[in-house]
Design a protein around this nucleic acid. Sequence first.
DNA 1: TTGCTAAATGATATCGACTTTCAATTTCAT
DNA 2: ATGAAATTGAAAGTCGATATCATTTAGCAA
Lengths: 174, 174
Amino acid sequence: METPKIKNTDNLPPFAAGARVRYNKNQKMTKQRTETKMELLANCLEKRGLKSTKQRHYIADTFFRSNTHISLEELHKKVKRKSPRAGYATVYRTMKLLTECGLAIERQFGDGQTRFENVPEDGHHDHLICLKCSEIVEFQNETIEQLQDKTATELGFNVVRHKLELYGYCKNCK
Amino acid sequence: METPKIKNTDNLPPFAAGARVRYNKNQKMTKQRTETKMELLANCLEKRGLKSTKQRHYIADTFFRSNTHISLEELHKKVKRKSPRAGYATVYRTMKLLTECGLAIERQFGDGQTRFENVPEDGHHDHLICLKCSEIVEFQNETIEQLQDKTATELGFNVVRHKLELYGYCKNCK
DNA sequence: TTGCTAAATGATATCGACTTTCAATTTCAT
DNA sequence: ATGAAATTGAAAGTCGATATCATTTAGCAA
Ligand SMILES: [Mn+2]
Ligand SMILES: [Mn+2]
Ligand SMILES: [Zn+2]
Ligand SMILES: [Zn+2]
């Protein structure tokens, strides 16, 4: 039997590859960054006494080159194009590893799927999500961030992370 | 066999009954509001051609009297004190109904559990969540709301709802 | 190179939080 | 009271995430 784990493989995903608005203005930058990240990963593996394997390389490389908020299912599909025998579990484990290494960010946009994105070189951002076409647009707003901290401080909290998601309709869908 | 659905019933829940900071200053208000809500529910049921049942009454009443962000499991446990044969599925269906009627809000704070809270009479609020003791503090910040809308508008979005959660350590836990 | 040993892999099983199904029960308009 | 339609509770199903385990592989050492 084929992997019965993944069901809704071919109906369009709830949050398909959303266009990003800030990154990867040109391919050169992406390429360079990917190489750097592979080195960072190599360091991280060595530091932990982990082995450098073909699968990890394929999966990380595929992820680093993706500029979307990608689900495990989507990533697994991509990886299998180059490495058809790669298992879903290995993709899962590798993305967990990349997250621990600080090379991936786990996101949860409210559909049932965990998504991963590359760590942005220009700092934290939040997300706008179109309820119709699932486009995801990223934004940074320092004023909001400051107000969040101020509010938290007033209530006696130390904020270590936050989640700000704006759901609505994009230019094309409103 | 007992319901095998609910597993982690007795180890402390990841987001236990968090103290609220804004509501239910006195019990009178809660009581009055609960009665009003029961009427609203009755209207909603009638409008939909649904029946008024003992279970719905118990569940809604228990929920309206709770002033926490309560999970189905927690609510089910409470309901069973008065109505021991009440099933989890009925609690689930009733909370779905209350949500559709605009009498409950579904929340997702990042642990695997969906939580429900009463609709506040003083409008929308967002949440601070303690990563250690799971206290949940509510806040309102109109400036942040406006900045969200402004940001979205600049990027061509119409926001219909949003999610803002600040995770950190509360007064007692920092 | 060749073994050796620990780590990694991939198929499969399991978990857990819902969500649906269905036979038995209850509501409520006649 | 009666009967059609809705509701209930137990159980089964769903589905993404995670664990298990036999087999394979990486990397070190002889
Ligand atoms: Mn992003
Ligand atoms: Mn709240
Ligand atoms: Zn759109
Ligand atoms: Zn705390």
